[in-house]
């Protein structure tokens, strides 16, 4: 075929249609792929233990078969400066078997003469262990209230996943207690201190 034949309007139109059909098939394929990604995603999550699907309630969040391996769990409690309170675990450490459910208590004390609404925020160290440290029940799931000067013990029920990495022998569970209604004067003071630190 000569160059002029290749560039004749008919030849170009024919090639355009052919190529457009192919590209159209790719578009269709990608549209189907989007829907196929839903089961693929679930499969990947379950097979490789990633994502959130695996943590559906009443399914895998219950303890798996207990193993013989032991892990030391350390408990820590901290209080944000704006909260007039104390938080301490009743036991500082516990050695548990993987897959076995345990319960520990934290003691909360309101040091002020007013009601204290607070939220305890958890963190797990090492962070890699976080998804493998399962809390079945925790005071951190909801906001809590303490009456003036009240002392209250609240529970955490947990189990350590048997998939907990072999190289770790211990895990630290820490709670930080935050005041939900901090004193406005203290809050303002803190903001000013932060602003001074930021050089504004």
């Amino acid at each position: 075929m000569s160059t002029s034949d290749l560039h004749s309007p008919d030849a170009i139109q024919e090639r355009n249609r052919r190529l457009a059909k192919r590209v159209g098939l790719i578009v269709l394929g990608m549209a189907l792929f989007a829907w196929a990604l839903v089961p693929i995603y679930r499969w990947v999550c379950v097979e490789f233990g990633v994502g959130i699907v695996q943590q559906k309630p009443n399914n895998k969040n219950l303890p798996a078969a207990a193993g013989d391996r032991e892990v030391e769990v350390r408990f820590v409690g901290l209080v944000d400066v704006l909260a007039p309170a104390k938080i301490e675990p009743l036991k500082p450490r516990l050695v548990v078997k993987v897959g076995e459910q345990h319960e520990v208590m934290y003691r909360f004390t309101n040091l002020s003469d007013e009601n204290l609404d607070f939220q305890a925020v958890h963190s797990v160290a090492p962070s890699l262990a976080d998804p493998l440290f399962h809390k079945v029940e925790c005071f951190c799931f909801t906001t809590q209230t303490l009456k003036p000067r009240e002392v209250k013990d609240l529970p955490v029920a947990f189990w350590v996943d048997p998939k907990f990495p072999q190289q770790y022998h211990a895990v630290t569970l820490q709670y930080t207690l935050y005041n939900l209604n901090p004193d406005p004067t203290l809050l303002k003071k803190r903001q000013e201190e932060n602003a001074a630190k930021a050089g504004v």
């Binding site: 590209v23 790719i26 578009v27 269709l28 990608m30 549209a31 792929f33 989007a34 829907w35 990604l37 839903v38």
Partner: peptide, 14 residues
């Protein structure tokens, strides 16, 4: 555009 946008169409429909 032709590879990525159909996935957006799918996710929006979901």
């Amino acid at each position: 555009q032709v590879i990525a946008t159909p996935v957006l169409a799918g996710v929006l429909t979901m």
